[in-house]
Design a protein around this nucleic acid. Structure first.
Lengths: 199, 199
DNA sequence: AATTAATGTGAAAACATATTCACATAAGGA
DNA sequence: TCCTTATGTGAATATGTTTTCACATTAATT
């Protein structure tokens, strides 16, 4: 009983991972049931044993990504003590996450996900704005401890941090890896740092 | 002879504008020939008198947007003398442009455009990176004149400027206008300014 | 070993959209 | 006015993808 449910969950996970893998090289529009099934050596119809429809698969992918992002955040909170280190570590991890898995920015910023239905768009918005709030908390905490200058708007700073990551992800995609994301982060970090500490 | 060609150009323009209008409320995937034609009171097949296919329409939209962006840049160069004012004005104009026309960020950041064919993606990348280069020039010019501190990387700063605009556009979309883009810019600007001048 | 539930299959149906084509009409130039 | 060309139409046609369904197989449970 538990085993079956487990097995089914594994299949679900496999489907999500196959989909994410396909998204590394293809746009969301090209994420076809047939292709996902093909990757797993299944017939297209088999996927309908695990998901109601294509949409449900997209939702599951979203959930999968949300998990990764938040786990990252949690890890950083635990391994690094002060705000500056946390932010830097987060930037590094983001760089890695995106480099390793192009599908993530592709789906997070895809208008197919946040463009269509209100429900999905709202969920998407909640994930992103929730993430921003977490960043804001880290920054505010740092301000309280005196690690970060107090005369700047924590929300705006969180936005700017996000602004280092997102355009980089986009340019990296567009340029097909030509744009050096790690280098961009390396150059952007000292500037951002100066902003945080005020020299 | 000239008149006919003119008339045809007007139709083309109308088609592009109708498409852009549809994109204000819909994702790129939903930009259907039938809908565009409907907006103009035409039969779908009529569009094929003006464009080879759907792709050609998307390309024309891209060109249209590129024109707007660069005209903006040109205007700012002419109306404002120093780098700081130019950047601030650019930010304001961006806010307006995006607020007025949701279709623009939607298409610029759509993976249907930069995800599919190499040619289109490359064109897209050239537009964006060309724009970044222009920003960089403005910044470098300001550095030479001593308006902007010289110990920061102009490219990275241009990236950060872009990073104020892009995520804001995204969040604004996702939140369906709930996210206050003008306010975001207002709060982000002083921080960015401090970065440029070093207090 | 028999039963049941889960999982998978192939073919067909449903759906959605782009595109073509033969024909119609209108407008401008000779 | 006649001729030519641009523009538009409606009805196919082409294309591509999701989803359903009756039936098969496998694995777990009794």
């Amino acid at each position: 009983m538990t085993t079956e449910k487990m097995a089914s969950d594994i299949r679900k996970e496999q489907i999500v991972e196959a989909a994410l893998h396909i998204l590394s090289d293809n746009e969301v529009k090209k994420l076809k049931i047939t292709e996902i099934a093909g990757h797993l050596g299944l017939a297209p119809s088999a996927l309908y044993r695990h998901f109601k429809n294509r949409d449900a698969i997209l939702s599951a992918i979203l959930e999968h990504i949300r998990g990764k992002l938040y786990r990252n955040l949690e890890n950083v909170r635990q391994t690094k003590a002060n705000a500056i280190d946390r932010l830097q570590e987060l930037l590094i991890r983001h760089g890695r996450l995106i480099s390793r898995n192009q599908g993530i920015p592709r789906i997070v910023f895809s208008d197919e996900l946040w463009g269509q239905e209100k429900i999905k768009r709202q969920r998407m918005y909640r994930i992103v704005s929730g993430y921003l709030t977490e960043l804001e908390d880290i920054i505010r905490e740092g301000q309280e401890k005196g690690e970060i200058r107090q005369d700047i708007d924590a929300g705006a700073v969180a936005g700017m941090f996000f602004g280092i990551v997102q355009p980089a992800a986009l340019l990296w995609h567009m340029s097909e890896g030509q744009f050096d994301i790690e280098d961009h982060f390396t150059r952007a970090w000292p500037i951002f740092l100066r902003l945080l500490t005020g020299e």
